[in-house]
Design a protein around this nucleic acid. Sequence first.
DNA 1: TTGACATATATCCGAATCACACATAAGTAA
DNA 2: TTACTTATGTGTGATTCGGATATATGTCAA
Lengths: 238, 238
Amino acid sequence: MDEREFLQGYDPAAYDRPSLTVDLVLFGISQGQPAVLLLRRDDHPFANHWALPGGFVAMDEGLEDAAQRVLADKARLQAAHVHLEQLYTFGAVDRDPRMRIISVAWLALLDDTAFASALAGNPALIPARVVLDGDHATVIDPDGAALPIAFDHAQIIALALTRLRGKLDYSDVGFALLPACFTLRELQHVHEAILGTPLNKPAFRRRMLDKGWLTPTGTREQGTSYRPAELYRVTNSV
Amino acid sequence: MDEREFLQGYDPAAYDRPSLTVDLVLFGISQGQPAVLLLRRDDHPFANHWALPGGFVAMDEGLEDAAQRVLADKARLQAAHVHLEQLYTFGAVDRDPRMRIISVAWLALLDDTAFASALAGNPALIPARVVLDGDHATVIDPDGAALPIAFDHAQIIALALTRLRGKLDYSDVGFALLPACFTLRELQHVHEAILGTPLNKPAFRRRMLDKGWLTPTGTREQGTSYRPAELYRVTNSV
DNA sequence: TTGACATATATCCGAATCACACATAAGTAA
DNA sequence: TTACTTATGTGTGATTCGGATATATGTCAA
């Protein structure tokens, strides 16, 4: 420990410190497309721009606790039902024009129910489609208009989708976007939405079943006008 | 922006803030084993424990800038020669008994030259072998004794090695641990050290060459007592 | 100069994987 | 009962991959 560290260690007021926030990418699939939930900013800076839900980290709460609190406050979602995963920490000096703010970005994966329930729980949230555009995301509202994104949040959203694509094959993140019981077709649609490309049905089916992550429930989907498909759930021991 | 955010935004002293540091996993291969460089702590807390080199983030420097500064200060290394990659941000409330400190952990990959030059540049650094042990790392000094690790740094080191293993196959991180020119045997040794398992030579060779990441230089290694191998470098356009 | 030796480099082959086309099964609705 | 739609299962050729084997090429010692 050098002298400066010693001083700071025992005199918390001695040095300026950056503020620390968490920002959440509330991610879901809407109409077969990757989508995020955003909030409109009313005030400067970036007034009338759209931003990720976020909040300051309190002194007595862990980073994941802070993310879960934002999940509850801004989207009325219980953390137990949402896959939450740390994405990256953004700390460019000028990322917020007011002051130095470091933000720990989190990826929250919502199934259709959670996505809808977040929209219902907070009317200020809007769903927006995500299109990758290099290391930025273009974000499109339900009417097809590109939204102006506040701060570096377009980068954060792009990183979220990129990370998701990378992990889809070798991890179980795909299931976090589906309800407890789902058909192979629904799982394939989720994968196709995230990857942005159609997949071969028998190959996808075999690949998923061979991984051993899926257990057939013995029940079938209902309300179809055609042959109903078997419902699967995620194997517990994974 | 809610009221609390508004207040904090314009009155930086209104709220307590956590301190922010960067911690660096200086990673290299030593005697065919994954190794990290550590510093001994002299003072409380964790006196006589071993810790990752780190430092506080200044108000006017970015996170990566801070990591590069630590690299220069604590290991006398120029950032240009070192692969630096953000690992994860650790923010448990009690991770430092003195005060709330959030640490952004970085992975720095050093080739043999950089590893040796860091050891020479700062005699306080010691090299230590890393063995994965669940989500913690066991860290063993050159004499074979397990070192006591300060704070949550054993977790950080374990995450570094785990991340490296995961990225080895589909990214070019492996090359960061080698000099500009290297033989396929040296590359295989690096992979084997990180994965902790022997690899089939012809298969490894073909896999690497087929990726198109390698360009033969036309020159050969020197000073061997056997047939010298072709030297390769990383293809520029990757 | 020559032969032993260690390693690099190239070739070969069976096993496994994968995409894709196709065939069959199972439900709905007219 | 029949047409229709989708689920589910099977078969096949192409490609990949691991591993063994064979060949080439350098150093070193006799």
